[in-house]
Design a protein around this nucleic acid. Structure first.
Length: 831
RNA sequence: GCCGGGGUGGCGGAACGGCAGACGCGGCGGACUUAAAAUCCGCUUCCCCUCGCGGGAGUGCGGGUUCGAUCCCCGCCCCCGGCACCA
């Protein structure tokens, strides 16, 4: 295994890392070393890393997600846990179709080829995955259960079909969930500007779970992610208010608005409806119709980008009709304006220009009256120069005048409720999850439309509804399945009508990843069930989930929703899928920029592994910085890792010498202390995912062993040195599993190092008998004294005062105060 | 604009309110070598000096608390991420 000279050995490694990788990966696999068995009495630990999309090549970013996660899983295994660490592939999705369209390869061929290549690449990491549990989401045995859950949700009223204005990406030719539209109104996937279309689509009723999703008390997640979800859900408390309509020829007798400021309701001077509001056509007078229709047409043409741009000037058109503010009987003009959103609240806004910046801007532009109903400090009745948003006393508000507006919110809402004009309510920013996609490479929605029976769910025993392999999947704006007659036309499962039609849209691929974590628990479930309840009970929920923060309001929110919905369906018994979440940072290119092909700064992990071996790439990624902060790849910087490994290898040769007598007591004590300190540091660091400082501690211990060997070769044959070296290998095992296993084998200790117990440490043995006592005068370090660790304040003071440097610094002054930090520092204060 | 997370040597980064810069990279000097690579040893924050003693400054900027602040508080600046007409 050792190599003195290899032609392709630019780092002059002392061993052949690729041979080590091959040797041990084959052995571990043959031995089933990382297979998790449910009939194991040790406590379980379900360690999951977000599975990769089958894009075709494993990026160094994947390694950055997977290698440290594997190190932690290996640590937990050594800690005595029965660890389940699975891997799989997110295999449905548009890139497969796009690649197929461009290269003429079938999406399935493209995807399964990629799975094979990526699986091989993943294996080179040397991670401790239990591959028997692999999940590939495009397989019928898997997506059958997407369909099953869809039907269960449908039965429960949690899946429904509705006509709605939805986000449409013209490039990808499909609708998108709101979560998949970026803040700037572009498609999350391809960056194309998204616009709104009215389409009949399937939704999951995630909003039913809004309040439960706001509850973070059962999850240990980064505060940042919790906050992002909280903001996304956007709960706001307020009131719904009914404004009376009395327009000849119009059936509706009210317009309802949602407001968070019922206390300002006496200041309503106009009413804004969203252009899409259903009452708009009826409420438009003949004189205004042309203007209103033009405005609506123009608003519909706007992309999300234009519509969402915050500093856009407010525009609107009056409908020519009026409603009545029931609180004060005031007649209020109706307008449409695109700053009212059809999809939030009731799609209508009461205009209170005095106390809302948007309404103020609008009213100023169109000459609408502005009436103050919350008095600013020193209010003298003069017109406001801008909207007044702060607290104050209510004025011009009928019976509520004189009341602090903060009290007025509840008081007005209660008053409104008493009169049957609305009342307190809660509104959410989050919308239901749009799951229909007009694309081929996804799970068919298991629904049949029958002229006689209406919407008919496909019976469970007819699942899966297979995705036909021979579809023409080029994008047309309609699902490719729509032009596949053998798929589309079917018999109604209910009445036998032979002219029934299948739903031809497929599901959002986030459905696949909303429950995949549970599938891993049941490798033998196959087509018989989604997961085995006993296995699920054994392993779920996931104890530690790691992955990128970009999934905060998509995958992670959907997975939580799915878990709660499945719980309510009686399919599982817990509330949250992922007990603990950790987000790793992003690995950047050599130039400190995001890696991208166009920048040419992409690091290929395969090339690095071929030269340095998996361990060096793993260890470097962990060493580059704190895992949650990411870091930049450096071809210069990684050189330190193979150097360290080579020194470990050289020390392995020292370990191979025959054992000699005990080391001199001072060396033995130093070695013992160093070992215990390193175990403590490594343990604390790995628990906190601080692999960079953990590795630094292992390097320091390596240096200590080297130093002893260099200074006193006999001491390096001592039992103390040898056991310290063995401890170092145990600590190394999660970081560099192949090298540690090889060196462990060389010690003659029993296979496998990965089945050994993590070493313990004794806090008492980490302490040193002697310390460096820092002596300060007025807070400035003036001397450093060597002292016994338990030196008393009086002794420390005496020692300090006998130091020439301290006496010089004191310059004859007497310390007025002495600060003593035991075992660390003495500060003599002269002031 | 609002909400998070950050700003520390030439570089990546360490530091329970207590020796700033662990560990590593790079650089410089030396050893080994015919030579180079590799390896090993030493030095490496900046400035000053009667350059071996020492002294001063220093963790984005300005204040504050404290015997003592990279760390806590207040006010700014810059970078990264999220949200942003949500009534």
């Amino acid at each position: 295994m050792s190599v003195e000279q290899r032609a392709d050995n630019p780092y002059n490694l002392r061993y052949d890392p690729r041979a080590l990788d091959r040797k041990w990966q084959a052995r571990w696999e043959a031995d089933g070393l990382y297979e998790a068995n449910s009939n194991d009495s040790r406590p379980k630990w379900f360690a999951l890393t977000m599975f990769p999309y089958t894009s075709g090549d494993l990026h160094v970013g994947h390694w950055y997600a997977e290698a440290p996660a594997d190190a932690h899983a290996r640590y937990m295994r050594m800690r005595g846990y029965n660890v389940l660490h699975p891997m799989g592939f997110d295999a449905f999705g548009l890139p497969a179709e796009n690649a197929a369209i461009q290269n003429g390869i079938h999406p399935q061929t493209w995807t399964l080829d990629n799975v094979e290549r990526m699986r091989a690449q993943l294996k080179t990491i040397g991670a401790s995955y239990d591959w028997r549990r692999e999940v590939v989401t495009c397989m019928p045995d898997y997506y059958k259960w997407n369909q099953y859950f869809f039907l269960k949700l449908y039965e429960k009223g949690l899946a429904y079909r509705a006509m709605a204005p939805v986000n449409w990406c013209e490039k990808d030719r499909t609708t998108l969930a709101r979560e998949q539209v970026m803040p700037d109104g572009t498609c999350e996937r391809c960056g194309t500007a998204v616009y709104q279309r009215d389409l009949e689509q399937w939704f999951f009723r995630i909003t039913d779970y809004a309040d439960e999703l706001l509850d973070n008390s059962r999850i240990d997640w980064p505060e940042r992610i919790n906050l992002m979800q909280t903001n996304w859900i956007g709960r706001s408390e307020g009131a719904e208010l009914s404004f009376a309509l009395d327009v000849p020829g119009v059936d509706a007798d009210e317009i309802r608005v949602f407001t968070t400021r019922p206390d300002t309701a006496y200041g309503v001077t106009f009413m804004v409806l969203a252009p899409e509001h259903p009452l708009v056509p009826a409420l438009t007078t003949p004189e205004q119709r042309a203007d209103v229709e033009a405005y609506i047409a123009q608003a519909r043409r706007l992309t999300e980008i234009e519509r969402l741009s915050g500093d856009k000037e407010k525009t609107g058109v009056p409908l020519g009709t009026y409603c009545v503010n029931r609180l004060n009987g005031r007649k209020v003009a109706l307008w449409i304006a695109d700053y009212a959103l059809a999809t939030y609240g009731t799609g209508a806004v009461m205009g209170v220009p005095a106390h809302d910046t948007r309404d103020f801007e609008f009213a100023t532009k169109y000459g609408i009256p502005i009436e103050t109903v919350i008095a600013p400090p020193d209010y003298d009745g003069a017109p406001l120069g801008e909207a007044y948003l702060d607290p104050g006393v209510m004025v011009n508000s009928g019976p509520f005048s004189g009341m602090p507006n903060e009290d007025g919110k509840a008081a007005v809402a209660a008053h409104v409720a008493e009169n049957g004009w609305g009342g307190p309510t809660v509104s959410y920013r989050m919308r239901d999850w749009l799951v229909s996609r007009q694309r081929y490479w996804g799970t068919p929605i298991p629904i049949v439309y029958c002229a006689a029976c209406g919407t008919v769910p496909v019976p469970e025993d007819q699942l899966p509804v297979l995705l036909p392999e021979d579809a023409d999947f080029r994008p047309t704006g309609e699902s490719p399945l729509k032009s596949h007659d053998r798929f589309r036309f079917t018999t109604c499962p209910q009445c036998g009508n032979v002219e029934a039609e299948r739903e031809t849209d497929t599901m959002d691929t986030f459905v696949d990843s909303a429950w995949y974590q549970f599938r891993y628990t049941s490798p033998d479930a196959g087509a018989d069930r989604a997961f085995d309840p006993a296995q699920l009970a054994k392993w779920a929920p996931v104890d530690l989930y790691t992955g990128g923060a970009e999934h905060a309001v998509m995958h992670l929110l959907y997975a939580r929703f799915f878990t709660k919905a499945l719980r309510d369906l009686g399919l599982l018994t817990f509330d949250e899928p992922f007990t603990r979440l950790f987000n790793q940072g992003v690995i950047l290119g050599e130039d400190h920029e995001k890696m991208s092909k166009s920048r040419g700064n992409v690091v290929n992990p395969d090339e690095q592994t071929a030269v340095l071996g998996a361990d060096a790439v793993r260890a470097y990624l962990m060493f580059v910085g704190p895992w949650d902060q990411g870091g930049a790849w450096s071809t210069q910087g990684i050189r330190g890792i193979p150097r360290w490994f080579s020194r470990l290898w050289e020390l392995g040769a020292v370990r191979n010498r025959s054992e000699g007598p005990s080391a001199p007591s001072d060396i033995a004590a130093d070695l013992q202390r160093a070992a215990h300190r390193t175990v403590q540091k490594a343990t604390e660091d790995v628990e906190a995912f601080q692999f960079n400082t953990m590795i630094a501690a292992l390097m320091t211990l390596t240096n200590t062993l080297s130093r002893v060997e260099a200074d006193n070769p006999d001491a390096a044959c001592s039992p103390e040195w040898r056991s310290t070296y063995d401890t170092l290998l145990l600590l190394l095992a999660p970081i560099a599993p192949h090298l540690a296993e090889e060196l462990w084998e060389m010690t003659g200790r029993p296979y496998s190092i990965h089945q050994q117990a993590w070493p313990d440490y004794d806090p008492e043995l980490t302490k040193s008998e002697e310390i460096t006592l820092v002596v300060q005068v007025d807070g400035k370090v003036r001397d450093r004294l060597t002292a016994a660790a338990d030196i008393t304040e009086d002794d420390a003071r005496a020692a300090a005062l006998s130091s020439d440097k301290i006496r010089a610094a004191l310059n004859g002054a007497d310390p007025a105060r002495v600060i003593y930090v035991p075992g660390r520092l003495l500060n003599l204060v002269t002031r």
